[in-house]
């Protein structure tokens, strides 16, 4: 028997979720800092699209507001702030990781598989989105961890954190789309504050070390 396909809605939602995950993979291998920031903007755009898609098909109007806010903040403002920082810093290459890209991809696949199945084992059911999307967003979060751990420049690490947040907001779309709008806004605002702090610290780092690489950051050993 051929397997039954999920509904068009579920399929589309899953595809959007998977695109977010694949963007995360692309960030893992992006050699240029600028392309990493662009990928982040694209990823945020896809997450926004998912929010709009859910809002439209499930008639949750507050999600439109959220989508509009996250579009302004994450697609336009945050990438622009980071890009300006980069043009001041005059650095274009991302830090190399100690591992090759193929190895990183394999590690990321293995880790996201782990995430997939551990979430799958929990058997969470969502009223609005297919469960696979939750598993995928956990995958996004885990790959973001890999990105932060394996890349050795402050921009990649910061972008890794921002995209981690994208994964979380995707998860919240799946399991908590009824979350009161005010709370969503609070989360977004908080992210904004975090972005500012990351920006300040990146500038301090660059001013002190004339580089965006994290290699000078090995004096303190926990």
């Amino acid at each position: 028997m051929p397997s039954v396909a999920p509904s068009t809605f579920a399929g589309t939602a899953n595809v959007i979720a998977v695109i977010v995950l694949l963007t995360e993979f692309a960030m893992l291998r992006a050699p240029l800092l600028r392309s990493q920031v662009r990928l982040y903007a694209f990823q945020s755009l896809v997450v926004t699209a998912l929010a709009v898609f859910v809002a439209a098909t499930r008639h949750i109007d507050s999600l439109y507001v959220l989508a509009a806010l996250s579009f302004t903040l994450k697609v336009i403002i945050v990438p622009r702030v980071v890009t300006r920082l980069l043009s001041r810093a005059n650095v274009s290459l991302a830090g190399n990781s100690s591992l090759g890209v193929a190895t990183m991809t394999l590690i990321a696949i293995a880790i996201s598989v782990f995430g997939f199945f551990s979430v799958g084992a929990l058997n969470l059911r969502s009223p609005v989105l297919p469960e696979a999307a939750l598993a995928v967003s956990v995958g996004v979060i885990l790959v973001a961890f890999v990105l932060i751990i394996l890349r050795s420049d402050v921009v990649s690490q910061a972008v890794g954190f921002f995209s981690l947040e994208n994964g979380v907001s995707m998860a919240s779309l799946v399991v908590a789309s009824g979350l009161p709008l005010i709370i969503d806004v609070a989360f977004l605002f908080d992210l904004m504050v975090a972005v500012v702090v990351f920006g300040v610290l990146m500038r301090i780092h660059h001013a002190r070390n004339r580089t965006l690489s994290t290699e000078p950051l090995d004096q303190l050993r926990g």
Binding site: S3, L21, V101, T105, S112, F116, A132
Partner: peptide, 24 residues
Amino acid sequence: ITEFLAAAFALAAMAVLIFYLGGG
């Protein structure tokens, strides 16, 4: 080129995984 092929592989692996996740 290995990176390019790794990307293709990641996609294909993901296709199988997502199916077993119940995402079809």
